[in-house]
């Protein structure tokens, strides 16, 4: 079965649009959410194959989102966190909560594609 359902959560519209375009071009079906609330709503009805989320979002941060996916939903969906605040604390807390990968801004779209593909391959 082809795993290509991707949830992209980022409040930065420009970057999100850019990444969405690239993901679509790579053959993914992308659902874009601009805040944590939207993500939660989406996850109640859908189970994407991978989640790519910004760490700083309105309503719920990326870290809280990981907690929600891992603890509340009990899902093992791979989560890749994007953040401009790539400090050690953020990275560690993201991995503690169960993030599968972490990438700091500025993001290389090509690199992100590879990371996403790798995570999907692992599952």
């Amino acid at each position: 079965m082809l795993k290509n359902q991707l949830l992209l959560a980022d409040d930065d519209e420009l970057l999100a649009a850019l990444l969405k375009f690239r993901f679509i071009k790579e053959g993914y079906t992308v659902h874009q959410c601009k805040d944590g609330k939207e993500v939660k709503e989406y996850l109640t009805t859908h189970e994407p194959d991978i989640i790519v989320s910004d760490i700083m979002m309105p309503y719920f941060s990326g870290i809280e989102l990981i907690g929600h996916v891992r603890n509340d939903l009990g899902s093992k969906t791979p989560i890749i966190i994007i953040s401009s605040a790539g400090n050690e604390e953020n990275v560690l807390s993201a991995f503690d909560m169960g993030a599968n990968d972490f990438i700091s801004k500025p993001v290389s779209p090509a690199e992100l594609m590879v990371r996403v593909a790798r995570q999907i391959c692992k599952t």
Partner: peptide, 15 residues
């Protein structure tokens, strides 16, 4: 403005 904003967020060949 858009290009300047994106410059901050993207790296590599895209930049």
């Amino acid at each position: 403005d858009v290009l300047m904003d994106l410059r901050k967020d993207v790296a590599g060949q895209s930049r």
